[in-house]
Design a protein around this nucleic acid. Sequence first.
DNA 1: CCAGTTAGCGAACACTGTACGCATCGCCGG
DNA 2: CCGGCGATGCGTACAGTGTTCGCTAACTGG
Lengths: 243, 243
Amino acid sequence: MTTDDRPIPSVWARPSRGRREQPALSRQQIVAEAVRLLDAEGVDALSMRKLGTRLGAGATSLYRHVANKDELVELAVDEVFGELRAPDMSDPAHWREATIACAQGIRAVILRHPWMASMLGAMAYLGPNLMRLSEDMLAMLEAAGFPLAEANGAMNTVFAYVLGMTGSEAAWLTMLARSGQSEDEWAERLKPAFEDLHRTHPRLSALFTAQADEDPGRRREEEFAYGLNRILDGVSAARTTPA
Amino acid sequence: MTTDDRPIPSVWARPSRGRREQPALSRQQIVAEAVRLLDAEGVDALSMRKLGTRLGAGATSLYRHVANKDELVELAVDEVFGELRAPDMSDPAHWREATIACAQGIRAVILRHPWMASMLGAMAYLGPNLMRLSEDMLAMLEAAGFPLAEANGAMNTVFAYVLGMTGSEAAWLTMLARSGQSEDEWAERLKPAFEDLHRTHPRLSALFTAQADEDPGRRREEEFAYGLNRILDGVSAARTTPA
DNA sequence: CCAGTTAGCGAACACTGTACGCATCGCCGG
DNA sequence: CCGGCGATGCGTACAGTGTTCGCTAACTGG
């Protein structure tokens, strides 16, 4: 137990177990493990060495399958977007429900992998999985009576909203998680500064107190749905065949 | 010239120039220089040592005025949001124009400092400058006939949209800048893959070709304005006194 | 004029991403 | 059967990172 774990250069003890017990490393495996590491320990914990160790490999071995850390992250982002299954877009009459389902799907994916928020602002994402989703949404909106240009505008608007809203949400949640405090503890900690807030920012203060005894998760869901519905209201006028 | 730049421990050559020629270092100065460095060289180039050198100081001196690099970045973000002057919100009848002006102001600020995009997804921003702006916008929307809760929903929706849209925009632009290519060169480079795109994603392909000979900057401006107007359309129904 | 507070700094530590070259493996043509 | 070959993993090394810890030297209040 103590003799053979030291790398003694002896011909007899040479392991010689073929490297091909497993295919050892593959791009898919690396990306999947990277996603797992990011989910578990957050964006700062992703280092090539740690990822290598998790895969039972040296750090630099990863570079045989991935050019950069940046490329690895790009692949991880696309991998996560691959979780998205396009919702049922068969019935054009339900374009609103389908769009809402799609938006909530994206939101759920980002909240499941909060590190995505940090990435999306730092890279122009053009991966195949999101392109497929875009094409499907365009087709659905066109079938629902939107001219292509309007469909594009509507989709971009919805998508930007989802990104912005969910990005802030994810950032807030990871900040909470990192500080190890609950949402209520945070509110409690702000109580002292509240007197000033009420004086200088009465409206913000009123909103805070009004939201104090709601379930935060539920409240965020409803706020997300509220804005989304207003956007769909505004967008629906662009249809050529109203309903 | 070659003799006195070596730190010889001689009492005679002791510099003795009072450290207080300038107040040396201050938090304001550090943050301002950090913003300048971020603007000039991008987010990866911000390191404590480089920033210190720029200020004619050692790297670790900064820690007397700033707790962390993270805190420094937080301060830099708030500093930049300080550029925002709340637009004229005196006339409640022009709430739409005022909101548009505010949104375009935020967009302009982020595009002027594209590194902001990477930060906003990675931190929950609660700085005083944005809080002031939020309070002003709430006041304006309330004066325009929105109940406070609806004003809050509208503001959050608009703000999420601006963040998402402009964030993607900034990410794309910094990617272009880093690759040193122009937008047209990028389109040219994608020409080979275009045949496939047309086959598998006909709608996206159609949109690309339709946008090929527009000025990209103008096009982005218009897309931004389009979505913003749809959102304001959808939101305006929540006013109690319609107009 | 002296004590105490404080700003700045040099050195050091634990890590990071990544380039390079070497060892080793499965395979494949002769 | 076997020798070379391309692919794969990895040890080492390098330049650079954020941050801590004492040390010096200046300013400031009594």
